Amino acid sequence: MPFGPNLPLVAALVHHYEELVAHVWRGPVARWSDSAIAREVVHDVCAELMERPPAPPRTPLAFLRTVCTRRAIDRCRIEQRHAHWVDSVDTLPDTATLHDTLDPARILEGRQRLALLADSIHALPPRCRDVFVMYRIHGVPQGDIALHLGISTKTVEKHLRLGTSACRRALQEALHDMAAMP
């Protein structure tokens, strides 16, 4: 028997499958027009629980509702990011005119700025760097960063302020030095 101690969880999953689909469809994904996406979310949760069974929960149905709700919220966020990215593609310049406007000097300057930014991020203290990269590069919400790192949201905000000002200061100094060169 592969599920051993998780048998109550599997039984709850099988018995309440349609109820979980309805719960997801009414809750976080109510904006979706059909229940197929809610069904996909519950199916993904089932597959994950089969691959990596968790410790047996005290109340299997409540556990499954929570996991399904969180998975649905994650899926909504992914779809929102994807939609935002697709919308932003329309604002990108045409590649035919891009070649005419970018000369080697501008490409080199852009690469130098990017290298300066990477160096300034790398020079941040480790915790500050982790917070800065998670928020600015990966787009992780501040609350999630605080939970993941075990710090308060005020500390996350402080690290973001310090990281942003350090990077800004490093870039301004470098650009000032570049402008002063003959």
Rank of each mutant, 00 (worst) to 15 (best):
V41E: 01
A47G: 12
M50C: 09
G150T: 12
N6D: 13
A179H: 10
R70C: 01
L13R: 01
C46N: 08
L162Q: 15
Y17F: 14
L108F: 05
R129Q: 10
V41R: 00
P104R: 08
R65V: 02
E157S: 09
R81M: 09
R71P: 03
T91K: 06
V14I: 12
L7D: 15
M134Y: 07
D119K: 13
D74E: 10
W32C: 13
L64Y: 02
E173V: 06
H84E: 13
L20Y: 02
H176S: 10
P182W: 07
E48Y: 14
W32G: 04
Q80N: 08
V24P: 02
I151H: 00
V24F: 00
H84G: 11
N6K: 14
Q172W: 03
I121H: 03
A22Q: 10
R52Q: 13
P2A: 13
A123C: 07
M181C: 14
M50E: 08
R58Q: 14
A83R: 09
E157Q: 10
A96S: 09
R169T: 11
R81N: 02
A146S: 01
T95A: 15
R26M: 05
H159M: 06
F132T: 09
K154P: 05
A62V: 10
L13Y: 07
K154M: 12
R65G: 03
R70Y: 01
L149K: 03
V14Y: 07
A12K: 00
V131K: 00
M1F: 11
H15C: 06
M181Q: 14
C46T: 15
A38W: 01
C128K: 11
T101D: 08
T101F: 00
A11I: 14
F132E: 05
K158Y: 02
D90M: 10
S88D: 04
R65W: 03
L149S: 09
R136Y: 06
M50L: 13
E173P: 03
V89C: 01
D94M: 04
P125I: 10
V86E: 11
A55E: 12
P2T: 15
I107V: 12
G139D: 05
F3P: 10
H84W: 07
V86S: 04
A118W: 11
G110N: 07
